[in-house]
Design a binder for these strands. Structure first.
Lengths: 125, 125
DNA sequence: ACAACATATACCGATATCGGCATGTGTCAA
DNA sequence: TTGACACATGCCGATATCGGTATATGTTGT
């Protein structure tokens, strides 16, 4: 009996099931910003942001899958609301670079290069 | 004389020439983190992060196009260094949601829903 | 000018993405 | 139960993305 082994070659390491990827799409960022004002039904989101209803639905689906929004049924409508916790990792990750855009570090770097210029052409790392 | 008009239908609104999209790729985030330790030549980046040389080159190209890294020629090698300013907009954008992951706002929201429960089924915006 | 090293680019295949359109599913009200 | 409204999903075409392999470009030292 032959045993078949299927090897899946992925074209992209990260799928949309990732917060960084979810917010890479401008329209999805717009939705998140809109949702800061409260809960919105799908159709209203679509109208407000000038997209089709299926379009809004799909983007909201992605946002829900990564936990950036929650939904609850109210009447015949489904209200979507912000679940901003998921943005925290992104904020913190970028925050890890804060020192590099502060002037303090730039001055340090400039000083280091100045020192380096005084030496031979040197190897770093 | 006929005039031909070509209409380009884009499949994706945002291309890679956007910081949010650039950091959506895990390997590129790894590169940025690595570059916090200083400037690195392409081959070393590839070795350190376990990717091929062309792979590293391509990712660095994307990062350079969006201004997240800079490069300078040193000997026969090209050193890539961090240009963290580009991450600031991302940090600030996510920061705009900070109040929503702070307990303070959650309590406010809970309070609002409590009030709402006392009313009729009402419309919110 | 040439070999060796370092990096960039071109091309390819597999897959993912996005928008549009059509259609399915669910919920209410009469 | 049926019709109207609200939303989700399926399918499609155009394009983008990513990794791999091969090859082009550039740089140094001889």
């Amino acid at each position: 009996m032959p045993i078949s082994v299927y090897v899946v070659r992925m074209a992209r390491a990260a799928t949309t099931s990732d917060v960084f990827n979810a917010i890479a799409e401008p329209q999805r960022r717009d939705i998140l910003v809109l949702l800061r004002s409260g809960e919105w039904p799908v159709t209203e989101v679509a109208r407000e942001l000038g997209m089709s209803q299926p379009g809004a639905s799909k983007h909201l689906r992605v946002l829900r899958d990564v936990g950036l929004v929650r939904d609850r049924q109210v009447g015949r409508r489904r209200l979507y609301g912000l679940e901003a916790d998921g943005l925290r990792p992104v904020h913190e990750w970028t925050g890890g670079f804060e020192e590099f855009w502060n002037g303090a570090f730039d001055r340090l770097e400039a000083y280091a290069q100045e020192l380096e210029a005084g030496h031979d052409e040197e190897e770093q790392r």
